[in-house]
């Protein structure tokens, strides 16, 4: 039972990493830029939800504030692209990377200035509840996280494979010039992708905050999510989710069975191994940018 408990909490953590990593990958696939502020987007989304929900602040009903927070982060992501990132169009990738790192810093201090640097937790309907499943006792928050993540990944997968806008986003990432020639408004598509990834990171933030306390520096776990994205191959959405789960599962086992000083490096050890033996990631789209 003990092991199963670890597995479940690892999966729940991994789902949050996976969702942040999804944000990384969506933006990378469509625009060739990596948004290193993705973790901080997650943190910001979480704080907005806490601010809207908790009785110390606005005190709206939980579901209403969840929807509001997701929308706010969607608009936030869209405007981020529209106002800041678009000006970097045509600049080197490194410039965009540094810019997004800076945006991450700003968000972190902004959150600290508004909501303080102490950990806060979200007053969610799942907190403290339990789900009995056979002989297992699982936290309702953990079950909710896993279900929401599966649902979200599934719907994103369908969105990219079946809808016109999703296909256009794929097209813009596979051949930007040809997308222009087909009348796909590439710049607007980029803005929408940033919006979408802001929404996904808000969901990740809500799940994270529902599971435990969050403080402004929580965005730094975006680095672990980045590792998850690399392990997953930075291309396929399900692959990235699995990358997140691998990192998530590694952590609780490592901290349980490996000496304290070494357990924290376990996720990065896996990252290193993947980079050495499968440099393109576990589920890479191998032929991606060849043509």
């Amino acid at each position: 039972m003990d092991v199963l408990q670890l597995v479940i909490s690892g999966l729940a953590n991994g789902c949050v990493y996976g969702l942040i990593a999804l944000g990384f990958v969506m933006i990378y696939k469509a625009t060739e830029a990596v948004n290193f502020a993705q973790g901080d987007f997650m943190m910001f989304g979480a704080f907005i939800t806490i601010w809207l929900t908790n009785t110390d602040f606005v005190g709206l009903p939980f579901w209403l504030s969840v929807i509001l927070a997701i929308l706010i982060m969607g608009v936030f992501g869209y405007l981020m692209e529209r106002i800041i990132i678009r000006r970097m169009f045509g600049q080197s990738q490194i410039a965009v990377v540094i810019l997004t790192i800076a945006i991450g810093f700003i968000l972190r201090f902004l959150a600290g200035a508004i909501w303080g640097h102490d950990p806060l937790s979200l007053e969610s309907p799942f907190a403290g509840k339990e789900v009995r499943f056979g002989g297992l006792v699982l936290g309702a928050d953990e079950v909710a996280i896993i279900l929401v993540t599966l649902l979200l990944t599934g719907s994103l997968f369908v969105f990219f494979a079946k809808t016109k806008l999703g296909l256009a986003m794929q097209a813009a990432s596979q051949n930007q010039l040809a997308a222009y020639y087909m009348g796909i408004p590439v710049k607007r598509v980029h803005g929408l992708i940033w919006g979408l990834s802001g929404m996904v990171s808000a969901i990740a933030g809500i799940l994270f905050a529902a599971k435990g306390a969050i403080d402004p520096s929580a965005g730094l776990l975006g680095i672990k999510a980045f590792a998850a994205a690399v392990i997953g191959g930075f291309g396929s959405l399900p692959g990235v989710l699995i990358g997140g789960l691998i990192i998530g599962l590694t952590e609780p086992f490592a901290s349980r069975y490996i000496a304290a000083g070494y357990s924290q490096i376990a996720p990065y050890t896996i990252l290193l191994l993947v980079l050495v033996f499968r440099p393109a990631g576990l589920f890479a789209q191998m032929q991606k940018k060849k043509v």
Partner: peptide, 30 residues
């Protein structure tokens, strides 16, 4: 460019710039 395509000018680029990872049908749909 998207305004110009809406006005009815479509450019078939040199060197067959297709969408390599999408199916033929999806390319046509685009």
């Amino acid at each position: 460019p998207d305004v110009i395509v809406r006005k009815g000018l479509v450019h078939v680029p040199e060197g067959r710039e297709i969408f390599p990872l999408m199916t033929v049908e999806e390319n046509i749909a685009m």
